[in-house]
């Protein structure tokens, strides 16, 4: 029998690892973090849950941010592709997404599967003393990343967020910088497979509170946590 991975055996630790442990999470290592592969259910069951109402912790996936008066042109020089519209997410050919938060501010989130070095390289290619007007925002540690999935996700979010996030109003790629359960959040509609999905970046220090608040809100939809294996399969990989 293979050794059971304990999250505290790794130095990178999600703010939510204890919650995952309590929920019966079975961990695998991803990107240096112990990540719940599943919560004791079969992948099929968790995919079914994700189609209805699920939540997954993707805080282990790379992300970063850049802002400043030259941020847009600097990113373009780095072969990043994005449009002029703010509050929209732009898919890169390599699989990452660039979230344009304003004309001069960007968040960049990695691929949920096969997270590459794209973001690490982007971070290290910024030279503050020469790249004037471009500043890094440490999104990996500022924000946790939660994925809320399923046909009931819009109804659940309607209980905790005053912005209309229904799929017909809030299309794939749309971003809302808003407040959920009294926390500042960046919400991106980013469907995975057949599940209506919202990626939420919010204060990592409040991750514990936020996770519990969402679980409470999704209780009436019989929602629950979903491991990354189900998320990968929904995304068509893994």
């Amino acid at each position: 029998m293979a050794d059971v991975l304990k999250p505290s055996s790794l130095i990178k630790r999600s703010f939510l690892y204890r919650i995952h442990e309590k929920a019966g999470g079975v961990f695998i290592e991803e990107n240096g973090f112990a990540v719940p592969s599943n919560y004791g259910q079969s992948v099929r069951e968790e995919i079914t849950l994700a189609h209805q109402m699920g939540i997954a912790d993707l805080s282990h996936v790379s992300r970063t941010g850049f802002k400043g008066w030259h941020a847009a042109s600097w990113l373009e020089k780095k072969n990043c592709k994005f449009g002029l519209e703010s509050n929209f997410s732009y898919l890169q050919s390599t699989g990452e997404r660039i979230l344009r938060l304003s004309p001069n501010e960007f968040a960049i989130v990695g691929k949920i599967v096969n997270d590459s070095d794209f973001i690490t390289e982007l971070n290290s290619s910024l030279h503050p003393e020469t790249d004037e007007g471009v500043f890094i925002v440490p999104r990996s540690d500022t924000n946790c990343w939660l994925k809320v999935m399923g046909v009931n996700a819009p109804s659940m979010l309607a209980k905790v967020c005053a912005v209309d996030l229904r799929p017909q109003i809030f299309p794939d790629g749309a971003i809302a910088q808003t407040n959920i359960a009294r926390l500042n959040c960046i919400v991106t509609r980013h469907d995975v497979g057949l599940a209506t999905t919202y990626d939420i970046l919010t204060d990592c220090a409040s991750a514990d509170y936020f996770w519990q608040a969402l679980l409470d809100a999704m209780d009436e939809f019989s929602g629950g946590p979903v491991g990354v294996t189900a998320v990968y399969q929904l995304a068509g990989v893994g």
């Binding site: 630790r13 703010f15 204890r18 209980k159 905790v160 359960a181 009294r182 926390l183 204060d203 220090a205 409040s206 991750a207 514990d208 509170y209 936020f210 608040a213 409470d216 809100a217």
Partner: peptide
């Protein structure tokens, strides 16, 4: 209503 009282934990809270 459902009262939301956000709380912040440091990494070492537990």
């Amino acid at each position: 209503g459902r009262i939301f009282e956000p709380v912040r934990y440091t990494a070492m809270h537990h």
